[in-house]
């Protein structure tokens, strides 16, 4: 991992082929760092915790058994009846 130190108002550029991403450090206040990102539209920028949450839900989703499917169906029937 490349680790670099930047001050408020500084920036750095990431070049990938002919594409470029510019990261600007806008503000640094009591542990909160405000960052501005200029990137081509096709680059998706996701907060790390959001992506991790989706990965973790996908992993949970794949852990099921047939028994869970039956209880799911029972639950639906009971909701319909209520």
């Amino acid at each position: 991992m490349l680790i670099i130190t930047r001050k408020k108002g500084d920036s750095f550029h990431i070049k990938v082929g002919d594409k470029e991403i510019v990261i600007n450090i806008l503000d640094n206040n009591a542990g909160n760092v405000k960052i501005g990102i200029d990137a081509p539209r096709e680059y998706k920028i996701l907060r790390g915790e959001l992506y991790s949450e989706i990965v973790s839900q996908n992993k949970n989703s794949t852990e099921f058994t047939d028994e869970f499917v039956d209880s799911f169906k029972d639950m639906i029937s009971s909701v319909k009846k209520e």
């Binding site: 989706i54 839900q57 996908n58 949970n60 989703s61 099921f64 028994e67 869970f68 499917v69 209880s71 799911f72 029972d74 639950m75």
Partner: peptide, 18 residues
């Protein structure tokens, strides 16, 4: 949408965000 099925069906969840 992906479902997360649990032993207790009251705890089943669905991912509507992704």
């Amino acid at each position: 949408s992906m479902l997360t099925l649990r032993k207790n069906p009251d705890d089943n969840t669905v991912n509507l965000l992704a």
